[in-house]
Design a protein around this nucleic acid. Structure first.
Ligand SMILES: [Zn+2]
Length: 275
DNA sequence: AGTTGAGCCTGTGTGC
DNA sequence: TGCACACAGGCTCAAC
């Protein structure tokens, strides 16, 4: 379920639990997630203390003090739990990391779109390999209205799938793309190149604000997202359009929220206040 | 080079 | 109750 705010929330919950701990053993309950799993055979991941937990886009890295680390992606349905090592594992627990404090960190992923891979890390705990080509983080000073306007200038595709393209900016998934476009009063079907510089400024501003507020709220809980401690995010209450098909628009009170499909994904918008 | 659609998996909910 | 289909928060690849 996770977009950037959910991944950030999970990383923040994981960090204090894992820092200073080391892994005793790793066991895999399945051969592969998105890719074949091999990290359970990698002795370099065991014994070294966790030095950092970092996030880049929707990837988390658990970095060890020996320059190795675990690159993780939650896919659509991934989540983590940390619980006593003698507790029973659950259906769809795919990986178990047994820690040196008699706790176990479990990676549960129903649909197996997740990633868990051993990588080399730098001194700051960032992965040295394993990431695809990624655009800037939403808060990167190098990203902004000007950069977005330039990136869109030769693109005729609809703005909604474009703002979700991680080569443009990372972290904007299907929920927050609809939400940020609504807040910026931009129709999701407009060709990318048709956005004015001012519209790009508004969109950048609303992407940042929406993601910040969602992180503040601990993410959005839809169906199966839960924090590492089992808690739920509260941003669902703040959603203006996502999942509200046929309901009255909360922004203009004249329109009705329309559900459409773009690139095979649901889009929600108000035709009255988004142009 | 950019755009579109299919595919990867499993589960849930709906309608017939 | 059984069955078929649509849909779900992400990402990658092939074809046009
Ligand atoms: Zn409206």
């Amino acid at each position: 379920m996770p977009e950037l705010p959910e991944v950030e929330t999970v990383g923040r919950a994981l960090r204090p639990q894992l820092l200073g701990r080391s892994i005793r053993t790793i066991s895999a309950h399945i051969e592969s997630l998105r890719h074949p799993l091999t990290l359970q055979q990698d002795a370099s991941l065991c014994g070294a203390p966790v030095a950092a937990v970092t996030r880049r886009a929707k990837y988390l890295t658990v970095a060890l003090a020996n320059g190795r680390g675990i690159l993780l992606h939650l896919g659509m349905t991934g989540h983590f739990r940390i619980e006593p090592a003698d507790s029973a594992h659950r259906k769809h627990d795919r990986l178990e990391f047994f820690l040196d404090n008699d706790q176990v960190w479990r990676f549960n992923d129903i649909r197996r779109f997740g990633i868990a891979k051993a990588v080399n890390v730098d001194a700051a705990g960032n992965p040295l390999e394993g990431l695809p080509a990624l655009g800037p983080e939403p808060w990167d000073p190098a990203w902004g209205g000007a950069a977005l306007h330039t990136w869109l200038s030769r693109r005729i595709a609809a703005i909604k799938p474009l703002i979700m393209d991680p080569r443009c900016v990372v972290g904007v998934g299907n929920i927050y793309a609809s939400e940020a476009l609504h807040r910026a009063r931009i129709s999701p079907t407009r060709p990318g190149k048709s956005l004015s510089r001012k519209a790009c400024d508004r969109l950048v501003c609303e992407v940042r604000k929406t993601l910040e507020e969602a992180i503040e709220a601990g993410g959005t809980t839809i169906s199966d997202f839960r924090g590492v401690d089992g808690s739920e995010g509260s941003f669902e209450q703040e959603l203006l359009v996502y999942g509200r098909a046929d309901a009255p628009c909360l922004s203009c009170e004249k329109g009705t929220i329309l559900r459409s499909v773009q690139g095979g994904r649901a889009t929600y918008s108000c035709a009255k206040c988004q142009r």
